[in-house]
Amino acid sequence: MFDFETKKQLKTGKPAAFKEVFRLLYPRMRGYCKLFIADDNEVEDVIQECFITLWEKRKSINPEKSIESFIFVILRNRCLNVLKSKKIEDRKVEIENLDVNELQYLYQLDFSEKEEKSIEEMLIESFREAVDELPEKMKQVFVACKIQGKKQKEVAEELGISVKMIEKQISKAKLQIRDKLMKQYPSMVVIILLLLS
């Protein structure tokens, strides 16, 4: 969608090229975010962050490759992060199956020209990994309470520990999962940049 010249100008930091990218991609990026994030302000923040990242990483742009797929990876990861931090606060974390929003494939085809993993699948996968890496006891408590959705009191009786201990284990687990989930993002950016350059 963007010609070689525009991409080269963006790479060298021409504001006009940056504005061109923004005005052509903004509506669709917004549409994509709205599939997962209901709050308009949150959507707006995600998009702003994406463009700031694009601007800051402009030097790593390869003018021979698509800017849309470059920014789409950033956008998808931003959305994923928002969902992750929301998910971890949910009373019950659904990691068996989530309803996949079909419409995201339209954006995938548009931006990356191919259908990829859905954001929901990525979310479940990374959650599963993070939960798997918890220490045994912590994992037991977390799975029982947050994934199976059992009451804390029930779990406390089952495992023969106090409710206070359960709370402590869950908050510790949450911290560890959050840590793991959010750490994935920066490493991904590096990989993306390597792939695109």
Partner: peptide
């Protein structure tokens, strides 16, 4: 020209 709603976002950016 920036699409409707985009103007504000652009300024903020």
């Amino acid at each position: 020209q920036i699409t409707v709603g985009g103007e504000e976002s652009w300024n903020r950016l």
